[in-house]
């Protein structure tokens, strides 16, 4: 059977871009879990709210794809920053208002609370932008929507398409990942987060304000989710109140797959799921005609089950590496 490598590369690019988005969201699950052992089920909605605010900011500026490029880039960055801050503020507030009061309550209490917030945020989103899918204001100039960097810039004769939006995903995601790694590994607050994740009482005895450190974890998770929201908005060119569900579920799965509480694990899991997602949605059809995107969830969760059976603590076991 002929292997269509150009098609494969196209889906690989799509998979990596989606994987980067999932990784950004997954980090929020894993950082929070690492420190308070709570699955923040509202996290997908925190991501969605970031996308919605980015939408609102872009619409409010009135800048569209026909305006000068520097204005478009400027608006894109403002919307990105706005979404990050907004999502961080939501995540911080949920913890402050609800989870913090339930710190010593049974595990199920904050968990149910998180599910509750997930619905509350979805309803707010529906009230805000309506129940149907909406397209964001066109921001990317039409020339660039079909622009293939590989042919136009590198002169390659190929059907493999690398679009500016794909590149934008990596240009935003990779520095964020590096920044996060540096922050957790080298800063005083980052180290305090790791210490708190390992032993809260001992951390308090070191003079670390545990509540503040936990808040920081929620803020960081929110910042990353907001960035993912803005990127997803223009990567998929669509937004809806339920968009946080699938991304959230995949990101949560990525975090578990990689080893919950483990930062590199979340990123690895994110890219893995992004890859499987893209392949199952498109590539497999080439070889199995009856295959379709409807199988993607089954494949992803099937793989999750298999990995959990053989490696219950995830791909990157938590004894060998750092947990936050």
């Amino acid at each position: 059977m002929h292997f269509n490598y150009e098609l494969f590369l196209n889906y690989l690019i799509q998979g990596l871009a989606n994987g980067a988005l999932i990784a950004l969201i997954a980090l929020g699950y894993t950082i929070v879990y690492g420190i308070v052992e709570l699955i923040n089920f509202a996290h997908g909605e925190v991501f969605m709210m970031g996308a919605f605010l980015a939408f609102t900011i872009v619409a409010a500026t009135g800048i569209t794809s026909t305006d000068p490029l520097y204005q478009i880039v400027g608006v894109f960055l403002i919307a990105l920053l706005g979404a990050m801050i907004f999502s961080a503020a939501i995540n911080f507030s949920i913890d402050r208002v609800a989870y913090r009061r339930l710190r010593s309550a049974p595990r199920l209490a904050p968990l149910i609370c998180a599910i509750g917030f997930s619905f509350i945020l979805q309803q707010i989103a529906i009230y805000w932008k309506g129940p149907v899918s909406i397209s964001p204001p066109p921001l990317i100039p039409s020339d660039y929507r079909t622009y293939n960097i590989l042919t136009e810039l590198f002169g390659l004769e190929t059907k493999v398409r690398l679009k500016p939006i794909d590149v934008a995903v990596f240009v935003i995601t990779i520095p964020l990942l590096l920044l996060l790694t540096w922050f957790i590994r080298s800063t005083r607050t980052g180290k305090a987060m790791r210490a708190t994740a390992q032993d809260q009482q001992a951390s308090a005895l070191m003079g670390i304000d545990v509540n503040r450190t936990i808040s920081t974890a929620f803020v960081i998770g929110g910042l990353l989710a907001g960035a993912a929201g803005m990127i997803a908005l223009y990567y998929n060119n669509i937004a809806r109140a339920q968009m946080g569900f699938r991304y959230g579920l995949f990101a949560f799965t990525a975090a578990v797959l990689g080893g919950i509480g483990n930062l590199s694990g979340a990123v690895l899991g994110g890219f893995l799921i992004g890859f499987i997602w893209a392949m199952s949605d498109g590539m497999v059809k080439e070889y199995i005609p009856s295959w379709g995107a409807q199988w993607t969830n089954s494949v992803i969760f099937g793989i999750l089950v298999i990995i959990m059976v053989f490696r219950p603590s995830g791909l990157i076991g938590e004894h060998t590496t750092e947990k936050v």
Binding site: K191, R194, A195, Q198, D199, Q201, A202, L205, G207, T321, E322, K323
Partner: peptide
Amino acid sequence: VQSPEGRRVFPRM
């Protein structure tokens, strides 16, 4: 400053 019972060092640091 307390050095607590059972040492309580941060094992993964």
